[in-house]
Design a protein around this nucleic acid. Structure first.
Lengths: 221, 221
DNA sequence: CATAGTCTCAGTATTACTACGTAAAAGCCT
DNA sequence: AGGCTTTTACGTAGTAATACTGAGACTATG
């Protein structure tokens, strides 16, 4: 592992964002920090991968939305091809889907674009030393994934409780007859619910319902 | 939110560990840091909760294994009763179960006991500002939870290429007729594939197939 | 070349699901 | 109490999926 004090080590950073202004701004903010050196800039994932292969940065600070190759794909490539490079995502999206996807793509952290210089610095040091960093909003959004935390955040489905229950059972692979037995109601009722659900969600097939249920965390794998 | 520079803010800390020696050691290490003040010490979860209610610390730095009330229960109580208090777990266990449980209990971070003073400081600052911190070992252990991390791991399905293709389309919510059109084959063929797939995977329903496809990363949300 | 495996298509009978309509009992809000 | 939503349930007709069986074509592989 690296040696302790963050001040006596220079962390080499590759900045990736498709907005030149953002690039310059962050670069300026980071350059003034001791122990941080911005060794390169790229404006999309493709460029970032190429530059990184050449420059061997310690940390890649990258936006998500970019042309050519977005941060998601790029993070995956980094994870597979240049696993030593730590990817820190800098995004304005507080969306859980995004964050979870980023982590699955091998990113080491996720900071929102409204953070202070200090927090950004801390995030960089953290991921550099092998840790994982999520800024406040991100971690909240993320850990609703893990059970409770605050609210399960089941989002607005427009479905009634009963319909949700039925949807869960459908998504779990039960057929109407089984669902009817499980809930002690008639098969016809289950069918009615099923119809209403599909109509409300504008989904045609049972498979689509399962996908929907998974997307909205009604059931989990 | 708090103001930026970690140096000009004093973070008030409550230390909780059942080993007096550890308590003293950490306390000494932290006291020498600017911006950190250890305002109290407790030797178990029960004490910690009582002391915290009185002292109103910013961050509770707590061990997991303790008598009377362990860190897990204590973290849960903190989360419910004193949600403003940020709980940072200091543990020697790199066990994923532990870590996941801690997060579910509302802890804001998890650092291993072998970290450097700098890292501990950074962790404290991070959770203080609302972020989430996991040290290297912890984050690795944790995020193996999220699916692959290393390989996409499509695993052994026992399905042929064609069957996988069909399965994907089914899971995406297409009906046999659409699949037939998509692949330029007869509906009957699709039906056959569908049967073979279900037989091979021992799954009865279309919803089950979707679930399976998602589980095995054939498609993604 | 023979055998195995895959991919393709089909027939038949049964079961499940869908679409649309109707409607009563239960619960909730004002 | 009256109105609203939810949950429950049924009918009928059509469409889709399933179970089971059989079979021709193509391609690897020993």
């Amino acid at each position: 592992m690296h040696e302790s004090s963050p001040e006596n080590t220079t962390i080499r950073i590759l900045l990736v964002d498709d907005h030149p202004l953002v690039l310059e701004g962050i670069s300026a903010r980071l350059e003034s920090e001791a122990g941080i050196q911005v060794i390169g800039q790229a404006s999309n994932g493709q460029e970032a991968l190429e530059l990184a292969a050449e420059l061997k940065p310690d940390v890649v600070l990258m936006d998500i939305s970019m042309p050519v190759m977005n941060g998601l794909e790029a993070a995956e490539h980094f994870h597979n091809d240049q696993p030593d490079v730590r990817v820190l995502i800098l995004s304005m999206h507080e969306n859980r889907e995004y964050i979870v996807k980023m982590i699955q793509s091998g990113a080491a952290g996720y900071v929102l674009k409204d953070v202070s210089s200090d927090e950004l610095l801390r995030a960089i040091q953290t991921v550099y030393q092998g840790g994982t960093y999520f800024s406040a909003g991100a971690s909240e959004a993320l850990f609703s994934e893990f059970g409770h935390s605050d609210q399960p955040e089941k989002a607005e489905t427009g479905l009634t409780k009963r319909e949700e229950t039925v949807l869960k059972l459908i998504a779990e692979g039960q057929v109407n007859k089984e669902i009817a037995r499980t809930l002690n109601i008639s098969v016809r009722t289950v069918e009615t619910h099923r119809q209403n659900i599909k109509q409300k969600l504008n989904i045609q097939t049972a498979a689509g319902l399962t996908k929907y249920a998974l997307e909205h965390n009604l059931i989990s794998l």
